[in-house]
Design a protein around this nucleic acid. Structure first.
Lengths: 211, 211
DNA sequence: AGGCAGTTGTCAATGTTTTAACACAGTGGC
DNA sequence: GCCACTGTGTTAAAACATTGACAACTGCCT
């Protein structure tokens, strides 16, 4: 039970998937699981599974395997905070709607407080039970509610403009759907990019080159 | 100008980003660029940039750098096919709407032919100029139009059910937003996963652990 | 009780990706 | 024309990630 080494990015990126599979198993009533079975689901080796968990101190029992419920709880503690992270949405367009929906219904660990948009006809409406506010009101809102994460669903130009303000207002984390790369210009923040265009392009490459 | 070695996955994943940056530069009228400048934008080293391009034969000129327009064109040829890939959308819900929009307006290399949904009230409507059809009509539609890629915007259970049928109907590539992992059960297809939940969880881990 | 089959934690070996180093090509000043 | 300067293509080294191997442990069967 010794913390082996600081988890590397590939390990961290696998955690949510372990967590997801374990959730499915728990729903199906599975009690214990072996590293080799998890490996089969993940498409990797048992060795990697064990080593991944060992970065965090190893949650298994020798000779037995891993307790599904316990392991999931431990991973949950690593991934999610005790309190949901207060979050705002920038850009209540098509994509913004879908992501608000996702945050409210399918995601855990985040609490959507409000959405912001520049379009006057949007302001005043609600989106999944949260108000759509004018971007003008952003500073006041943040001063009062201290959101920690912003979901960026505006085009590149708007994201560029908003970046400095959001950081100044105390936002530390970004779930970024825009084509603007925050991390380049502001190194001290946490950005999770979802570059849909890049993802599609990768698929295109794969289809083209028959990978 | 010698093809060095088969490009590895990390290289391929970087190509769309190079392509994106080069597009921005071209718009700004930049004519030439050096590997070190590209490296600064990408957040990596000049060495990596040069090596990445060399997988495909090296598009630069010694002593000069890279011609922005030329390099972008070459990368474009690698990533995209001559003809847009005929594509269908499965699931015309909130997310499906956003992705149809994205495919039509922001993406290149794909042509959205139709959307499919099981909800009767959806069927018959249009979505970004393409018809929303009943899932029942899927087989006939594919027989006639031969789509090559499907965008999966339905929940896990529906994706599981649809998987075999879509593959049988000749779909080779999937842009998958569901929590169902195609690649595990069907190895001979091309899947680009966009696991929004996993992405959010990664952000949560980062915020929690202050990475 | 003892051996066997199954499983984890851990360390070593292997494979892959990134970074560094350097020879060589082109450009511009003189 | 020659020399310094810039910057690529390419090879080698370093860093990193995955896989293999094995001791330690458990439960079960005889």
């Amino acid at each position: 039970m010794s913390m082996q080494s600081k988890p590397s990015m590939p390990v961290i990126k696998r955690l949510p998937r372990y967590y997801r599979y374990l959730g499915e198993m728990e729903n199906e009533g599975v009690v214990k699981v072996s590293s080799s079975e998890l490996a089969r689901m993940m498409g990797t080796t048992a060795s990697q599974v064990r080593q991944d968990f060992n970065c965090f101190g190893g949650f298994g029992q020798q000779g037995i395997g891993y307790n599904v419920k316990l392991l999931r709880e431990e991973l949950g503690k690593l991934i999610f905070s005790r309190e949901p992270i207060p979050t705002i949405l920038i850009g209540a367009g098509n994509l913004g709607h879908a992501m608000a929906n996702f945050l409210k219904k399918d995601a855990q660990g985040f609490e959507l407080l409000a959405a912001f948009d520049v379009k006057p006809e949007m302001v005043g409406l609600t989106l999944c039970d949260v108000p759509i506010l004018d971007t003008q009101a952003l500073a006041d809102f943040c001063a009062e509610h201290h959101p920690k994460v912003a979901v960026i669903c505006v085009p590149r130009e708007a994201a560029m403009q908003a970046a400095q303000q959001l950081i100044d207002l105390g936002i530390r984390g970004f779930w970024n759907f825009s084509h603007y790369d925050f991390s380049i210009e502001y190194p001290d923040i946490l950005v999770e990019n979802v570059h849909l265009g890049d993802s599609l392009a990768t698929l295109s490459y794969a289809v083209n080159n028959d990978l």
